[in-house]
Design a protein around this nucleic acid. Sequence first.
DNA 1: CCGTCGAGGCCCGAC
DNA 2: GCCTCGACGG
Length: 766
Amino acid sequence: MSHAVSDLLHGLNQQQQEAVLATSGPVLVVAGPGSGKTRVLTHRIAHLIQNENVIPEEILAVTFTNKAAGEIKKRVEGLIGPGAANGMWMGTFHSIGVRFLRQNPGLVADRLGILPNFVIYDDADQVAIAKQAIVANNLDVKNVAPRRMLARISAAKSQLLSPTDFVETIENYGDEIVSRVYREYQALLGKANAVDFDDLLVLPIRLFDSSPQILERYQQRFRHILVDEYQDTNRVQYVLVSALAEYHRNLFVVGDPDQSIYAWRQADIRNILEFQEDFPDARLIKLETNYRSTRRIVETADRLIRENTQRIERTLITENDEGEMVSLRELSDERHEARFIVDEIRRLQQSTGVRADQIAVMYRTTAQSRVIEESFRMSGIPYRIIGGLRFYERKEVKDVIAFLRIIHNPADELSLNRVIDNMPIGRGIGPKAIDAVRAWAEQHNLGLVEGFVAAAGALDAPALAGAARSSAQRLGFAIAQLRELEKELTLSELFDALVEKTGYQSAFHHENEEEMERWANVLELRNDLEDFDALGPGEALAAYLDQVQLVSDADTMKDDAPEVTLITLHSAKGLEYPIVFIAGVEEGLLPVSRAIEEEPTNPNAIEEERRLFYVGITRAEKLLYLTHASGRARYGKWDMAIPSRFLANLPVETVRTVGRQSVSGPVSLVGRARSQFATSNSRSSDAPIRTTTIVPDWVAERNAPGATEQPPVSLEAGLKVFHPKFGEGEILSVTERRGDQEYEIAFKLHGTKRLLASLAKLDIIE
DNA sequence: CCGTCGAGGCCCGAC
DNA sequence: GCCTCGACGG
């Protein structure tokens, strides 16, 4: 073996080496969590370039996030030298889809009827368009939920069904409605010269269908195709990849059926399960050794996932240390849960010096992040939320982007509406004025945007009078001016002109903190634009607008700032942290209520939830905490919560259960005693396999008469306590009051308050 | 034409 | 509990 080859194989195990070297023909790598999948990918790419005379342009690598693509590229260059990977096609399916479309503007216009300046509509844009489509069909948005329609439309597109194809599948009146809305939705996108996310995958396929020469060109170009997270690909992605790989047949896919968590967006687990049928000459390589987590974490995960039926049998093993017990903890409600997490992080930081960026808090639903965030904000521990309200979804940021989109694509009337509704320059333009401009525009066979531009300059202008007229002129003039400036200014200069000429800048008075923060966000956007100043005028805007729509939540993560990461289980896929908290391990959250509802007809839904839990658990390297609450507010209403069924299957040998520590409200003393029993029992027992069966017991006990009416534990002066609303405080005095006790508590942030023992939900801190 | 107010839906997850 | 939408008065 040559020097170069053995260098690249150094430190890889047998199976990993096999995966790196199997460079001819189709290969399926089934890679367990933490099994060195990324190393395999990077070393394989490095090997191809360095030892197999493959030039970077001949490699197509599909990753799950754009950030992962960047990392892989960096690591490849670390192996074979800076710049050595330049020219490689790497990114998510969606960004690669855009690339196909952008690279063939003429054909895309000719065959697909989409002009080169098309924009990509995001989730909110899609909802708006779906609503329009519903209204246009004389249906009521109240009865026909736009999001439900979008889900159906997305599902149709994911199976490559056009509106016309869809008609063939109609089985009932509901389908009939979807069909009509789908048709109108697609027509509206076309009119706006816009595409949605699914189109980014569907349109390249239609392009290749209509022009086999183009497909052939790419087929010959990509000698090697690599796809990460193959278990989460859908039908469209499968078709795209198979088509591209047809010529060279060097298709290398990596995935793990146990981590398939995107069935809801049409990911088809069959793609991976049937890979060997699709490619009978495919080589199967299994990576089963986990290098990431302690043995206890690995065993916990393995035991959990064995409950699933839809999987390829395999064992996850590790040579790592046994590590600490997984900590399972019950808290009284979501605030106490959040507080526990923050307190524990502080304790860990003090005792072990762990950095904030080595810690992640994960949850099933974004709604859970609010309370947790609040707790972090109060604690002063730096944190970062992935997902939730993304930067680009903030109102003030969307406003500016909407205006940029009009400049770039005058057909984008959705953005025009947004500008008119939200920016000061739109003041004075109401439905009546818009109707008048539209009437004029239609007469002249022009779009609405051009109507406004004409109102500002043309002699033959839309019929407007008074205030509406001057407002329309103001808007039209700004659009016309900025459109010209876009051709000569850099993006950041264009931004400056935009906020000035639209009066957007002066709309911020910087009087209160909120306004200042919003303006800071607008300026942050300017920062963003500066990155594109190197591109020439006229070109930068298109590139920027694409990028804005394609960044994912996980892409926005910074590595440098030492912050605790707050993240959904879905977004956490592919990441790893020394310390992981998973919050809300409860029925209704994990598994999420929808999956429970579907259970009778679709047991796969629960299995996917279990996989999601599995993904979360396997993110942890050293310490893993699982928390759940006895009660939780949902939709603003408080409700009892039941511990997740998944907990019942976790091995007692690896999980330590700690009962609730609240001192008021329904305290489950029995549960606490029992969990201590369970722990000590596991130590003395030498029974081979034992699972925690205490979960259903807790529920039974909590619902048993008397169990919920524990007398409040009395507190005394001097104790430090925590209140869900007022935070930390110290008890100054305790007084008897009608059979109850009243505490006088000095809160750090909210001053001194008098609270009744029976009502206040207090935790003792010290 | 604009801002305010109350009703109702909402939240499963993401490119 | 928070956001969005439509109705209403200024």
